[in-house]
Amino acid sequence: MSQFTIEDLKRIMRACAGEDESVDLDGDIGELTFDQLGYDSLALLETASRVQRELRVALPDEALGDVETPAQFVAFVNGRLLETAA
């Protein structure tokens, strides 16, 4: 079972939503909010859509509403991967 990592998340966000110049994505960003990282709700939606396609896992929009940080996003995706594998 492949694990989704924060590096995967950074790569996908850079590709589909770009990168805010005032933020260093390579720094320790796990606990910062997406808002602090310069990503709005649409950027999160676009990211989730790419992750769903890459990993073939369903990420319901309504559950995404509670995801505020990259660490939470990664945990959420890995949780869904486990559920799907089960």
Binding site: A15, A17, G18, E19, D20, E21, G38, A43
Partner: peptide
Amino acid sequence: LPGRLVPQ
């Protein structure tokens, strides 16, 4: 342009 604006 800022990196966040280009893809959108």
